[in-house]
Amino acid sequence: MNALTQPVVARLSLASSQHDLHHARSLLDSALGFVRQQAATAQDPYVISRVGDVQIRIEVAAALLERAEGLLDSEKDATEISVALAESDLASAEALATASDAEFELTGRRTVLSGSLHDPLRWKRHLIGNFRLNGIHPSAQEAV
């Protein structure tokens, strides 16, 4: 079985990506509100660059999430769907971690987040890399 034959699990994976992406956007918005109140800080080149970095990561995660949703709804190849889900999960989790780090760097506070500890990201990197590099299709256990 894989993401295509386990639609409930695939939808949960999408929900996790959506959750992380929503939180990343919220953290960035909160940090931006704080920084904008500090006139000198808002003009700092490091701060401007950091905000740009977080925004780019959020947009990439959003694009990968949209792609995964589209593939899941299209009944494409199960392996492509599994890899797209893993890419979306990874990008969303990394966008959230980046936004959380930026929040701390820019505001001095950190919002407590529930993480993706139940589904280690390093295995998603392995799944994606093994498929893209070696053409090895994820096993049923890896695919969700």
Rank of each mutant, 00 (worst) to 15 (best):
V83I: 06
A91G: 12
I48S: 04
N134P: 07
L90E: 14
S114P: 02
A140E: 15
G129I: 05
L32D: 05
I136L: 11
S88I: 01
V112Q: 10
A10T: 10
E87Y: 03
S82F: 11
A102W: 01
L96I: 00
A93Q: 10
L21E: 07
R50A: 00
G70P: 04
E59F: 02
E59M: 11
R122N: 05
A3F: 09
A93H: 09
P138S: 10
G115H: 14
L113H: 00
A140T: 13
R122Y: 09
L64P: 06
I56Y: 12
V8K: 10
V54Y: 14
V51I: 15
D53K: 12
S114N: 05
D29Q: 13
D20K: 09
S92I: 01
A86V: 00
T111K: 06
E103R: 02
N2A: 09
A102E: 01
D119F: 06
S116V: 04
S49M: 06
G52A: 04
M1L: 12
R132I: 07
R122F: 11
V54Q: 08
R109H: 10
L21Q: 04
L28E: 11
L85K: 07
L96W: 00
A102G: 04
H19P: 04
S100P: 00
G70N: 14
E103P: 01
G52Q: 10
E59C: 04
S17M: 09
T111Y: 00
A62E: 05
A78V: 12
R57V: 02
A140C: 11
T41W: 02
A78Q: 07
E105Y: 14
L85A: 11
P45C: 04
A78D: 13
I128P: 01
A62M: 10
H22R: 05
P120V: 01
E59A: 09
I81E: 08
A31Q: 10
L96P: 00
A61C: 08
W123I: 09
P45M: 01
A84P: 08
H19R: 15
A42Q: 12
L27T: 01
E69M: 02
V9A: 15
E103I: 03
R50S: 00
A62W: 02
P7R: 15
I48V: 13
S116W: 03
A42S: 15
L72A: 02
Q55Y: 04
A102L: 03
R122K: 09
Q18M: 04
L28H: 06
D20P: 01
Y46D: 13
A84E: 06
G129N: 10
S16W: 13
Q38K: 12
Q6K: 07
Q6I: 05
D20I: 01
L106V: 01
D44L: 13
K124F: 03
S139H: 12
R25K: 12
P45F: 05
E87R: 14
A62N: 14
Y46F: 15
